[in-house]
Simulated assay, not measured.
Amino acid sequence: MALVTSQELADELNIDTDDAELKTVDSLIDSAKAMIQSSIKLKITDADILAVNEPLYNRLIKTMATSLYYDRELSTGYSKGVMIMLTNLRAEVLGVYNA
């Protein structure tokens, strides 16, 4: 179980990978994780979520961090894709931990 790294996301976005840019991407990944975890409304760790659905969690982190990269304020809110992934991940996690 591996969590997405700033280098992976920078490579996917085809952006510079100097130290300053990687720190920015890392901060956006942390912000995305915090938003996801707060939406689940359980005291849960990255490892817990990864164990439920690693590919979906990582894709959601990447998608949210990308949105934050281009629009720090999320001025148009979450995209429909983010909402779909967030709803699915939340349901899966709650299903496992509330069973």
Rank of each mutant, 00 (worst) to 15 (best):
R90V: 04
L3K: 15
S67D: 08
S6C: 05
K62D: 00
T17S: 15
D11T: 07
D11L: 10
D30Y: 08
A34H: 10
S75W: 05
M1R: 11
D19Q: 10
L68G: 02
I36K: 08
S39W: 04
V96R: 14
K23R: 13
L3V: 08
G77R: 10
Y97E: 13
K62E: 06
N58S: 01
K41E: 15
L28P: 02
T17N: 15
L22P: 07
D30V: 03
S75P: 04
Q37S: 09
V82C: 11
M83S: 14
A34G: 11
V25H: 14
L86E: 01
L28R: 14
A47K: 12
T66N: 01
L56E: 11
K33T: 03
M64Q: 09
T24Y: 07
I84F: 11
D48A: 15
A20K: 13
Y70A: 01
V96E: 13
L13K: 08
N14Q: 14
I40M: 12
T87E: 14
D30G: 06
A99F: 10
E92C: 03
D71S: 03
L68P: 00
P55A: 09
I49V: 12
A91E: 11
K43P: 01
K62H: 01
V4I: 15
K33C: 07
K23V: 06
S75Q: 05
A47V: 02
T24M: 12
I44V: 09
M85T: 01
E12P: 00
A99C: 10
N14C: 05
I44C: 05
Q37N: 05
T24Q: 15
A91F: 00
R72S: 08
T66W: 00
M35F: 06
T76H: 09
R72I: 03
L9M: 07
